[in-house]
Simulated scan of single mutants.
Amino acid sequence: MPPNWCFKMIKIVSFDMDGTLVTSRYVERVWLEGVPTLYAQRHGIGMEEARKLVYDEYMSVGTRDLRWYDLSHWLGRFDLDIPHADLLNMYRQDVELYPETEEVLALLSEDFDLVVASNGATEFVEFELDGLRHHFREILSVTSTFGKVKDYPETFLDLCRHLGAKPEEVIHIGDHRYFDYEVPKEAGLAALYLDRERMESGPHVVHDLREAAERVRGM
């Protein structure tokens, strides 16, 4: 991580979403409970068998494949006739912000443009962050907008071009060490790895969003 004085170049703070701004509870409920429940009902099998079949199908694709994030793909794959909105609304009560999220967004938005760059599909991003829109210049699904996962430096270069910014003017913060730290760094952005489990330390590691805000602001 560059020294703090380099952060004076930063104009835009980019955030991952799940595991960063909001907990993963909601997406886990949709994907690991909602979809298997509908599958069990549709195909007349038990819940445990449905969970295993659905999970095995997910894993056969993997997180570097766009299909992993595409709800339409999985509803079609499992022959589930339900509107997206109905499935997403089933677990609305499970959308959960981290305790410091709103405080940090309000603080950083005083000095920086804030954006979200998530692998999650647009319908998830817009649904989970609906109450936080006023803090952000833009909320983006990179898989939906650019047709790329955050597995490629080009994804972050697409993000910079989309925002009209140079890579050195953007810092990305997220909880996936590879997608949210190593890849954006390779693309020329500044980056912070959000390790909420406190397994790592170092100049590129923060353990909550308050610490990330302090680092970005050079405190």
Rank of each mutant, 00 (worst) to 15 (best):
V115E: 06
E110M: 09
T101V: 00
G164H: 06
L32K: 12
F112K: 05
R67G: 07
A165H: 02
T37I: 08
D18G: 05
Y26Q: 01
V35I: 15
G188L: 07
K11E: 09
E138Q: 15
Y69A: 08
L140A: 05
S24I: 06
R64V: 05
A187R: 00
T145N: 13
I12E: 08
V142K: 00
L87M: 12
L132N: 05
V183K: 00
A165N: 06
L66Q: 08
H134A: 15
E103Y: 11
G120W: 02
W74A: 02
D113M: 06
L71K: 02
D111G: 14
G188M: 06
R42K: 13
Y39P: 01
G218Y: 07
F146N: 00
Y58M: 12
D113G: 05
G76A: 08
V30L: 14
R133V: 15
H134I: 05
I82Y: 12
I45P: 00
P167C: 04
L71C: 04
Y181W: 11
A190T: 09
I10K: 03
D111W: 10
K166W: 10
I173P: 00
D151M: 10
Y181F: 15
E186P: 06
P184S: 08
E138I: 10
L159D: 01
P167S: 05
E128I: 09
T101I: 07
G46R: 06
T145E: 09
Y69H: 12
P203F: 13
E182C: 04
W74T: 01
R196A: 00
G131R: 15
F78M: 07
P184W: 01
T63Q: 10
L71Y: 06
E28W: 10
D70H: 07
L107V: 04
P203K: 06
L32I: 04
L163G: 00
K8D: 07
G44Q: 04
A191E: 01
W5Q: 13
K11Y: 00
D151G: 12
R51S: 14
G147C: 13
R196L: 11
L105K: 10
H134K: 09
G120H: 03
A191L: 03
L129D: 01
S60E: 12
T63I: 09
T23R: 10
L75M: 14
